[in-house]
Design a protein around this nucleic acid. Structure first.
Length: 431
DNA sequence: TCTGGGGTCCTAGGACCC
DNA sequence: TCTGGGGTCCTAGGACCC
């Protein structure tokens, strides 16, 4: 076993900093009257509930519930619902991450609302608990976002510590002391362990494994057989052996997806082409931002599976001969692919595109058969369009194939102002 | 009326090669 | 009678995460 070759560093401590009900907290940061009130944030298209305040939870509303069913549950109780406002949440996230970065040795931004941190050389003389308390206070003071922090010797244990922190008044829980682990894990459901999803939970319960502790002491070969190396790693992590290291630099992405559900059912091929063209444009902007080029695009479409109507779903892929980051190259393929998989007589709910076969833009080498004489002009055109859109707002310049009306666009009927990123939507103190 | 979106990794199995 | 063995690459499907 390789892990035994390494000396475990007993002075390294992992932290998991997680924003409490992040989207709700972002809404509250600019609307203090929402404090103490039942608040919820809906997913794209005002689809289902993705973030809810404890007050809303207390009314019996579960996470993931479709927006239109919430009324049935809450009755006449006054609640505040918001469409998701990713521009606001993304910017708030960046502010939180900057503060955490400035106060730890290493940080891995794990998602929009959580980050792993690494504290090296933690000796008895250093008051780590006091330090993370400061982190927590500084984030709250400078952004208005409350965070919980879990500390432990591995990332998986830090996740567990964080869950406990979230329920505590202090918002911090320290699980670095090995003698505490056994007792703590006995009180953690197996389903709540990072890396154990719904499917594995069902199987493990059949084997009589109900808690994180049961899992930790189960025979390793059995875990390996049932769950492959991933399960084995999780087990070791629970035992305090770090197997999952920090990813400090974000890895270059292997694929980029852009897809949306429509605000209304769509049966017309021209609207479908508009949508694939729109999502293709977004995906390509993202690709260029990451300094990547791609060769392959996949288009996928589907009807509404929740409806009792004729169902159809399909996808198709196509590739360029050369790597490219030039949007029109891909819109042309996407349009051809859409024509190929589109079937008349269905009402579609969703379209998406996925870019794959990606590499760093500096690593391309021209092919013998590359007859594209306009390569540099195309590149300059993209740079120009991107900078204009960055400066004056997304979509100032767009491709005609993406349509103008876009009557299929997603619903966002309860969206708050993007007060940290748009001059026109600054917070108003007095109306 | 109305049910999200964006990713990663692992494994098994088939095709193909020598 | 008797039909190898091992490597690589690709894809699809299934699991997980937020």
């Amino acid at each position: 076993m390789r892990y035994q070759d390494h000396e475990i560093d007993n002075t390294a401590v992992y932290g998991l900093v997680d924003c409490n009900q992040f989207y709700v907290s972002c809404e509250r940061a600019f609307a203090p009257h929402l404090e103490g009130q039942p608040v919820g944030v809906l997913s794209n298209n005002d689809g289902c509930l993705v973030a809810l305040s404890p007050e809303l939870k207390a009314l019996g509303v579960p996470r993931g519930m479709p927006g239109f069913k919430i009324r049935d549950i809450v009755g006449n109780n006054k609640i505040y619902l918001f469409s998701s406002n990713y521009e606001l949440y993304g910017d708030m996230s960046a502010r939180v991450m900057r503060i955490i970065t400035s106060m730890s040795d290493d940080i891995e931004v794990y998602s929009i609302d959580e980050a792993f941190t690494l504290f090296n050389n933690v000796h008895a003389s250093f008051n780590l608990l006091g330090h993370v308390k400061e982190v927590r206070e500084k984030v709250k003071q400078q952004t208005g976002i409350p965070v919980s922090i879990g500390l432990a010797r591995t990332k998986t244990l830090a996740k567990i510590a964080n869950k406990i922190a979230k329920k505590s008044k202090a918002g911090i829980f320290d699980l670095t002391d090995p003698s505490m682990i056994e007792n703590v894990l006995k009180r953690v459901d197996i389903a709540d362990v990072w890396g154990i999803g719904r499917q594995h939970t069902k199987r493990l319960i059949r084997y009589g494994i109900y808690t994180a502790y049961d899992f930790m002491v189960a025979p390793a070969y059995k875990i390996r057989k049932e769950m492959s190396v991933c399960g084995e790693r999780t087990q070791l992590e629970l035992k305090g052996v770090p197997c999952i290291s920090m990813e400090v630099a974000p890895p270059t992405p292997r694929s980029i997806v852009c897809s949306r559900s429509f605000g209304k059912p769509v049966g017309d091929i021209n609207e479908m082409i508009e949508a694939s063209s729109t999502f293709c444009t977004k995906a390509m902007q993202n690709l260029r931002k990451k300094n990547q080029v791609a060769r392959t695009i996949t288009v996928f479409i589907s009807t509404n599976p929740f409806k009792d109507t004729k169902q159809y779903a399909n996808y198709a892929s196509g590739s360029l001969l050369e790597y490219s980051a030039y949007t029109p190259d891909f819109i042309a393929i996407a349009t051809a692919l859409m024509k190929k998989i589109f079937r008349n007589g269905y009402l579609y709910k969703k379209v998406g595109v996925m870019l794959t076969d990606m590499i760093d833009k500096n690593r391309t080498c021209p092919s013998l058969f590359d007859h594209d004489n306009h390569r540099s002009v195309k590149q300059q055109a993209m740079v120009a369009i991107d900078s204009i859109n960055d400066r004056f707002g997304k979509d100032i310049i767009f491709f005609a194939s993406s349509g103008v009306q876009r009557s299929w666009s997603m619903r966002r009927e309860m969206v708050s102002p993007r007060c940290t990123t748009r001059w026109g939507e600054l917070l108003r103190i007095v109306d």
